[in-house]
Design a protein around this nucleic acid. Structure first.
Lengths: 200, 200
DNA sequence: ACCTGAACACCGTTCAAGT
DNA sequence: ACCTGAACACCGTTCAAGT
């Protein structure tokens, strides 16, 4: 009975040709996003994959569904890193290190910051869930550092996400600024540190 | 002899119809940018202006030439504000106030941040000159505040411009974040303030 | 069940033909 | 000198027709 229609009403597994097309589309998308950023032409992706436009749309109803496959992994990874750092480092180190990893990796995906912002308040976006989980992990790092007294208490997870995304964006606007990524990030992170109270 | 071709080899004044078309295009562009941001459709602008595409291109060879007309005024105005604040306020107040005015006004032009970044290293851009002048004015405010000991000395004009543009960008990505403009800006500006040395 | 590719409504940019 | 609008090479999205 292998490969016969399921009798339990659950969705069928993909037909072999469909499965192959799906994989091809994802491969092509990876290459295209690598070259052109998250705004890569969908037509071009279909062309590279050697499938018709309809096939691309059948597998991925919109651009974000396609991106979710590529970026979801990254989000999950970064959420995992947050958890690992939380367990192994001081609250302050964990936060600073995570922010560094976040912005460093983002350079590989031009347009990532815009895609992430678009997903923020759009619960229907395919990227919403994995992005939210990552943000929550980052927010925990922030709270820990705040509880330990290292970070000013009037900044919240949304502020942190906004600022770090803003850096991500600015950094891929111009190569001359990309070189200053670390410096810009530290200007912001230093600024978030609780200003020491004046002398005794 | 009024209206006859100039004999001195200098460029002629625009013909009356050309002058009218130019004005119409700018009017249409203002409306379109207002509604759709700096990425407004050029075709749409020509349509609204009631001119052919060729006419639009004749007057403005590319999008930036058109934007220069709209944004150049704004840049000049902000450069002027910087000079005025420099004369009338303390170094720290002048800087903080100027940054507030810069980001507050930017909300009126969606896409402005991206257009400004594009112009940064592109000397052929029509926006280059007026944008540069504004940046230099802002850099003076920064230097003054640094000389007065209010701002950390390892931030330069490029950093300041990058950060303030990053805020401008993030703020028009989502209305929920636009509401936090002032707060985000003050997180950054506070952060740039020189950390007070530890007690005696 | 899945695929193809033409069709549609848009772009930006160029240019021959008109006045 | 200036204008028009068709032409070209691209998009994203949809959908009838095929297997």
């Amino acid at each position: 009975m292998t490969g016969t229609p399921a009798a339990d009403g659950r969705p069928h597994a993909l037909r072999a040709d469909a499965q192959r097309n799906r994989a091809r589309i994802l491969d092509a998308a990876r290459t295209a996003v690598d070259e052109q950023g998250t705004q890569a032409s969908l037509r071009d992706i279909a062309r590279r994959a050697g499938v018709g436009m309809g096939t691309l749309y059948r597998h991925f109803p919109d651009r974000e569904a396609l991106l979710e496959e590529l970026l979801g992994q990254r989000f999950d990874l970064l959420a995992g890193r947050a958890a690992a750092l939380e367990a192994s480092r001081s609250p302050e180190d964990a936060l600073v290190e995570w922010l560094g990893e976040f912005t460093a990796g983002a350079g590989a995906y031009r347009g990532l910051a815009a895609s992430m912002m678009a997903t923020l308040n759009d619960e229907s976006s395919s990227l919403h869930a994995s992005c939210l989980a990552m943000r929550q992990a980052a927010t925990r790092l922030l709270s820990n550092a705040q509880d330990a007294g290292h970070i000013r208490s009037d900044a919240d997870g949304t502020d942190l996400f906004a600022l770090v995304n803003a850096v991500t964006w600015i950094v891929d606007q111009a190569p001359s600024i990309a070189a200053r990524r670390q410096h810009l990030l530290s200007l912001i992170v230093d600024g978030l540190k609780r200003q020491p109270a004046a002398g005794p």
